[in-house]
């Protein structure tokens, strides 16, 4: 345990490599207005120079510093110490769903692989690119995503059931919804969306609750995508007419 002078708080960080981990306790003198990331970087600079943590903007714009603070998935740069009960230790763990590399850093590369498989924006031929704000309000909501992967981290289908092969996770349904709702996009991703496991989602809204960008992931991305897939693939008339259709 390491201690220093000033207004003290106790912080416990899960440290270690791979599966070998343990909580290490630090006594830290804090300044007004600090967020959890300030504390972690302070510990790194003064007490634990090899403490591994990801961060970039420190302003909730890049989505790098995701962690579980007192058991809650958060961006560390957006989590004020003032909002935590400082009579108890502040406990900082890495996000749980992805394999740990070291300390607070996890291997999130799976997400980048999934992203490659999504059919990109495909504009209509000779599109004039005239469209109106109300046409893209919902698209812009999806494009607010900062890829912090907190939604992936809390989704039961990934966190508990580990369906990495069958389910792309809320983040990528958000991307798919943004593409599908773009007024000039001409690709048909509905079959792919079904194969991406959209129906494995059982609408517990855990993803929505943790989204630091307040994207209504379940209501505005996943449910509309489910409806589109159902309308297209499972409508009564499709079922009746399918044997006669050439497609």
């Amino acid at each position: 345990m390491v201690q220093e002078e000033g207004r003290q708080i106790t912080v416990r960080i899960l440290r270690g490599e791979g599966v070998k981990t343990q909580e290490v306790e630090y006594q830290v003198a804090v300044e007004p207005g600090w967020v959890v990331l300030d504390v972690v970087l302070h510990i790194q600079a003064r007490m634990a120079p090899d403490l591994a943590v990801r961060w970039n903007c420190k302003a909730a714009k890049c989505g790098s510093c995701s962690a579980e603070v007192n058991g809650k998935p958060r961006l560390m740069c957006k989590t004020r110490l003032d909002d935590l009960d400082l009579t108890k230790p502040v406990v900082v763990h890495p996000i749980k769903t992805f394999p740990r590399i070291k300390d607070l850093v996890t291997d999130v590369s799976w997400n980048f692989e999934v992203n490659k498989k999504i059919q990109p924006f495909t504009p209509k031929k000779d599109a004039a690119f005239i469209y109106f704000q109300e046409d893209i309000d919902r698209v812009q909501e999806m494009r607010k995503c900062i890829e912090c992967f907190l939604c992936q981290n809390v989704c039961h289908v990934l966190r508990n059931r580990e369906q990495y092969q069958r389910f792309v996770g809320p983040r990528f349904f958000v991307r798919l919804a943004g593409l599908e709702m773009h007024p000039l996009d001409d690709a048909d991703r509905l079959k792919q969306i079904e194969e991406d496991g959209i129906f494995l989602c059982n609408i517990t809204k855990c993803c929505t609750h943790v989204c630091p960008e307040d994207i209504h992931i379940t209501d505005n991305a996943i449910i509309p995508l489910k409806e589109r897939v159902i309308d297209k693939s499972y409508s009564f008339w499709n079922w009746v007419l399918q044997p006669f259709s050439s497609k």
């Binding site: 120079p49 090899d50 591994a52």
Partner: peptide
């Protein structure tokens, strides 16, 4: 002087 190993070591 750098503490720790080469694995994800911000001090290094």
């Amino acid at each position: 002087c750098v503490e720790g190993s080469r694995l994800y070591n911000p001090g290094w």
